[in-house]
């Protein structure tokens, strides 16, 4: 029972972590809570269903399931990144110098827009992701792990390792860290801030797209409002780990997934969705800089 909940929590947590990375990277650079980020994840889930349906219809899936899934994932990432890019250009860029809360309200606007956009184009009813692997899996220490769970955990871990390497090793990654620390100094050093912001949105959206498609496969059901609660939970994960900190988002995501699944197993499953909010409130009140974040003092 405990191990089973642990595996469930780990699966859920790695998805939260993937989404949380998008929040934390954008916050690190723009100090903006990108409220619409959860909707990118929702778009990813829908795109997964739509595109796989398309490839099944043209016969690619029956030719090779894995090829079909691979292309679907790739296209989902491309589309979601394009959405992230477009949102940044339209809704946030004009507000670069506006008061702090204006971009947040704009982000809420984008979030509402995208939810209803999907509802109007795809219908208000649940969409079904075809069950491709059934419940196939393996058993370790009397704990059942499906292949899907294992691949979600592995894919997430792989993406996080890649992201970390990218941020630590590449020139662009270093530029991102520089911009997060000091925008003025970074631009004096010849870093194009706008380009870095664009790249941040593209990467964050890509990660959310992967998360969205995997969750759609995992639960098999998708609707247009899953982005809201997943978004809030991922944001909670980012805050829990320390907003602005990339390892923090990973840690926070996994912790939150574990809390939710253990809480649902041992305390009450009805209030499962409330745990994230309770954690969010407690963390912000007690230790707003999170587990791995830096603390900030008020500037006079």
């Amino acid at each position: 029972m405990f191990l089973q909940q642990l595996i469930n929590g780990l699966t859920l947590g790695s998805v939260y972590a993937l989404i949380a990375l998008g929040y934390t990277m954008v916050y690190g650079i723009l100090e903006l809570i990108n409220f619409a980020h959860g909707e990118i994840y929702m778009l990813g889930a829908y795109l997964g269903i739509i595109l796989l349906g398309f490839f099944t219809a043209i016969g690619l899936t029956s030719y090779s399931l894995y090829l079909s899934l691979g292309i679907t994932l790739l296209l989902t990432v491309i589309f979601c990144s394009s959405y992230g890019f477009t949102i940044e250009k339209i809704a946030y860029k004009p507000l670069r110098n506006a008061p702090r809360l204006s971009p947040l309200i704009s982000a809420i606007g984008v979030s509402i827009f995208l939810q209803n956009y999907v509802m109007l184009t795809q219908g208000a009813t649940d969409k079904v992701f075809p069950s491709l692997f059934g419940g196939a899996g393996f058993t370790v220490m009397s704990t059942r792990i499906t292949y899907l769970q294992a691949s979600i955990i592995l894919v997430s871990a792989f993406m996080m390792i890649m992201l970390n390497a990218f941020i630590l090793k590449t020139k662009t990654g270093k530029a991102m860290r520089a911009v997060a620390q000091d925008k003025v100094m970074a631009s004096l050093l010849g870093i194009n801030i706008d380009t870095i912001i664009t790249i941040t949105f593209i990467i964050g959206s890509g990660l959310a797209a992967v998360a969205g498609m995997m969750v759609a496969m995992y639960y098999g059901l998708v609707n247009y409002f899953i982005g809201y609660s997943a978004g809030i939970k991922a944001f909670t994960a980012a805050v829990l780990g320390g907003i602005g900190s990339v390892p923090g988002a990973m840690l926070g995501g996994i912790l939150l997934g574990l809390v939710e699944s253990l809480g649902a197993g041992y305390i009450s499953s009805e209030y499962k969705d409330a745990y994230a909010f309770i954690i969010l409130i407690i963390i912000l009140l007690v230790k707003p800089e999170g587990l791995l974040g830096r603390s900030l003092e008020e500037k006079i």
């Binding site: 506006a98 971009p103 704009s106 809420i108 606007g109 979030s111 827009f113 109007l120």
Partner: peptide, 11 residues
């Protein structure tokens, strides 16, 4: 839909 877009435009 309009409310969402409206908020962005207004901001």
């Amino acid at each position: 839909l309009a409310l969402g877009a409206g908020l962005v435009v207004l901001m």
